[in-house]
């Protein structure tokens, strides 16, 4: 890397170098803030989404995962609409179509496929076939997979301290989500483990593909494309197999749950926007570690907004996640150059 040359008088040279350093550090800190905000807002969106899932028609469904898949597709649809309008208002509407005509845009569409229908489908099937205890623990490891892939394919620099933070965040999320195996027989147990691993890799691959694409595409555009493509593929390629269209039709006659789902979609859209910005500005490893702090935010919002009881697991897991988050953000100067 070339050494930066300062020109002008001695005084202005010194000021320029200082301002340049401050601007770079400001960019890195902004990326960390976007990451933390993404985690917090995803925790909030999850609570709102959870409220919608307690209402008709999402309490029924042809299969036990119909409601989850329909809710996920509709959430992404509302988020995609919200983000498209956000870009149009900010004078970037044309960028969406320009992006779709380029290879980085295609990569963002692929990221949508991996992070949307593939990962979400794997997650729900993993719970179905192997039980929540194993499926949730495995899928919580997606930041480790994403960071490894980013280290290999994007040559992202990950210091031992950040690795420690990522591991703590994942461990905390597993502690929070862990429930002892319920003793039920799972005849397709290993298929369920495979589905959970698919989800884990799906979210990891999404982070790396979209981050590669965002080298050449604005994150605000990338996330609008991601959410819209995820919704369309789910509607066309997934929901017909689980009688999902019937539930979508019902949801439009239940305005009580529909507007709550729309609200969750808009909040989720803002959260995803923050996550994609942080992927671009701080790198995959840190962004994913900060994103998974949604678990602790979900606990906090859940405690105040629902009848969530704080158990020992939740408190210990929350503390471990917080410690991991601190390790990830404690040295923003490492973020001045993200890749080796």
């Amino acid at each position: 890397m070339a050494e930066v040359q300062a020109v002008g008088t001695s005084a202005s040279r010194q000021t320029a170098l200082e301002l340049s350093g401050k601007r770079k550090l400001g960019h890195a800190k902004a990326g960390l803030l976007w990451g933390a905000f993404g985690g917090m807002s995803w925790g909030f969106a999850g609570i709102i989404l959870g409220i919608a899932f307690t209402m008709a028609p999402f309490t029924g469904g042809a299969t036990i995962y119909t409601a989850g898949l329909v809710g996920s597709a509709m959430h992404d649809g509302f988020a995609g609409i919200f983000l498209t309008f956000y870009n149009i208002i900010n004078g970037r509407g044309s960028e969406i179509f320009r992006t779709l005509k380029t290879w980085p845009g295609v990569l963002v569409c692929l990221a949508a496929l991996f992070g949307g229908p593939i990962a979400m489908g794997g997650y729900l099937l993993g719970i179905q076939f192997a039980g929540a205890a194993y499926a949730l623990s495995i899928t919580a490891c997606f930041p480790v997979i994403g960071t490894l892939l980013a280290w290999i394919f994007l040559k992202e620099k990950i210091t031992p301290l950040v690795w420690g933070g990522i591991i703590c965040c994942v461990a905390g999320a597993i502690i929070v989500g862990y429930t002892p195996p319920d003793g039920a027989a799972y005849p397709h147990f290993y298929l369920g483990i495979g589905c959970a691993l698919l989800a884990c890799f799906g979210w990891g691959i999404e982070g790396v593909l979209s981050t590669f694409g965002m080298d050449m595409v604005d994150p605000d555009i990338a996330i609008a494309v991601r959410e819209s493509v995820s919704c369309i593929v789910s509607l066309v390629g997934v929901l017909p197999f689980v009688a999902g269209w019937a539930m979508i039709g019902e949801s439009f006659t239940n305005l009580d749950s529909l507007w709550i789902l729309a609200l969750a979609g808009c909040i989720g859209g803002v959260s995803y926007l923050a996550w994609y910005k942080s992927l671009n500005m701080t790198g995959v490893g840190r962004a994913m570690a900060l994103n998974i702090t949604y678990v602790i935010w979900g606990l906090i919002f859940g405690f105040f907004m629902t009848d969530l009881e704080l158990t020992r697991n939740l408190i210990i897991g929350g503390c471990v996640i917080t410690f991991g988050g601190v390790l990830v953000v404690c040295n923003p100067k490492e973020l001045l150059n993200l890749r080796g």
Binding site: V4, Q5, V7, T15, A16
Partner: peptide, 8 residues
């Protein structure tokens, strides 16, 4: 890209 020169 890289920064090669800074000035006021």
């Amino acid at each position: 890209i890289e920064e090669v020169e800074v000035d006021m």
